[in-house]
Amino acid sequence: MLAKRIIPCLDIKDNRTVKGINFKALKDAGDPVELAHYYAENGADELVFLDITATQEKRKTLIKLVEKVAAAINIPFTVGGGITTKEAAADLIYAGADKVSINSAAVRNPDLITQIADRFGAQSVVVAIDAKYHHNNWQVFLNGGRQAVALSLFSWAQQAQQLGAGEILFTSMNHDGTKKGFANKALSKLTDLLKIPVIASGGAGSYKDFKDAFIDGKADAALAASVFHYNQIKIPELKKYLKQENIIVRI
């Protein structure tokens, strides 16, 4: 049986991890390669790197970082942030990324999804969607939640699937940072609508939040950042709990 996946997300700026990282085991927790290796050895099923570097100049060094990460770990990883062309996606995949994640660029140029999927297969394209529930609607936002667009989460996710996305990474802006659980109702509706896997993001605070995302939200995978980075949730312990709750996880 297929296991539910636990995915730590690492924000990268100028080739360093940002957000507080609290691991005594690490010499340099700001080093994405060392942190990636730590997670790979400690129960993570997959990793997501989100590059939030501002300048194009510095983004070029991202390729080198991806090469180093690929050499250091033997679990799959996704790289996202600022990918606007098929060529940029190809550079990251050739450097060793298993998947690329596209967000705003996919909304602005939906054909990008198809271009990457045709070249590298649907499994290599994660479409990330940030959405906020208001006015009785899950509205899609771009640019890290700063710009609203006239799209609903559900119709856009279906369109992305149609265009060749292999996975949807749904972040609820209402839940992100609250540590009060994932957007399980929306997740459940999304999972039922789609044929492709859904990664839940935003709101992880406790073991039970993960269980609820998998059972009530029917998510295929759950992503979190700070609860892992601050060591509030240890992945091996989380997986033991999930297994006791009869959820299939890789231990």
């Binding site: 297929l2 295929d220 995978a221 890789r250």
Partner: peptide
Amino acid sequence: LKIPHMGWNT
């Protein structure tokens, strides 16, 4: 079931 079959299986 979801396609692709993606993830860890036994």
